[in-house]
Nucleic acid binder design. Structure first.
Lengths: 147, 147
DNA sequence: AGTTTGTAGACTAAGATAGTCACCTTTATC
DNA sequence: GATAAAGGTGACTATCTTAGTCTACAAACT
């Protein structure tokens, strides 16, 4: 039960470009620097997000990446699924046929419950929510200097 | 965000011995057969559970393993933590110092929320709950034959 | 044409996971 | 006390996943 660095990085990348939403394409180089992600790795990381239409990319001079939808239209469940590849916590949740004991298995019910709880948190959070939280944090951080 | 086979196996093992609670030591051989877990692997699997006082073991003829506490006194959060070793979903949740951006990181708050949601499900479920659910399932399975 | 950007594929190093094997220790029983 | 039936332990291995690199390529702006 670990979140991979793909999941962590990718979410940070989306939050980064969401924070710059409306300002045109954000170069990967800048994102890599701000988020401390190796550029070559970042390039690979975003491909599923671009492919799924969560973000768009523009090549060439002045290019970069930007959100393909409004921040409130991107929920974190979709994001994590795209980044991690594998969806469920345990294989048998979605595909009972992979384990012959699925039908009468009490532990499987528990994993299902666990998976649902996690999904609920992710699905109910959008990029806009993250942006709001981040802005509050940035604001508070600024005020810290005056205390 | 996958549950390891250690976590899945180990939980099944505990449910197995909880179902036989009060009947004396349950031999690992029997558990291995019923739960379809390689015996050699099973032996290794249970050591942290024995070490933490969740189950007890008895060697020699007529030996086996049994619960060291009442089923309602064993919650699944403790079990999963013992089996998986690593506790939090993301390192920085418990140890902000591992990442310099922890303080002002909105994604970290999300991971914390996610972790708490998962913990809540596990912590509020005891072995007794699992036993109850399993008994209902077994009962229903029995009735299926008469339909 | 040249430079700046993103794209794609192949590859690799390190670590985790799942599992095996051989041998040891404890305990009951004859 | 020999023996057999249990669990315990350390070392090992095969496979997979993760994280990351490298190289060559394609598009777009100037």
């Amino acid at each position: 039960m670990k979140l991979s660095s793909r999941g962590r990085y990718g979410t940070r990348v989306l939050l980064d470009i969401a924070m710059h939403n409306g300002e045109g394409p954000v170069p990967l180089r800048d994102i890599a620097r701000r988020q401390q992600i190796p550029l070559a790795y970042l390039k690979r990381l975003i491909t599923p997000l671009v492919g799924a239409g969560v973000m768009r990319s523009l090549r060439g001079v002045g290019g970069g990446v930007l959100l393909a939808r409004l921040p409130q239209q991107v929920n974190l469940l979709e994001v994590i699924r795209l980044l991690e590849g594998t969806s469920p916590l345990v294989e048998c949740i979605d595909r009972p046929e992979v384990c012959e004991r699925s039908r009468g298995c009490a532990t499987r019910d528990l994993w299902t419950e666990l998976d649902r709880a996690a999904r609920q948190v992710l699905e109910s959070t959008t990029l806009e929510d993250l942006v709001e939280r981040q802005k509050i944090k940035d604001k508070n951080a600024g005020e810290m200097y005056y205390i």
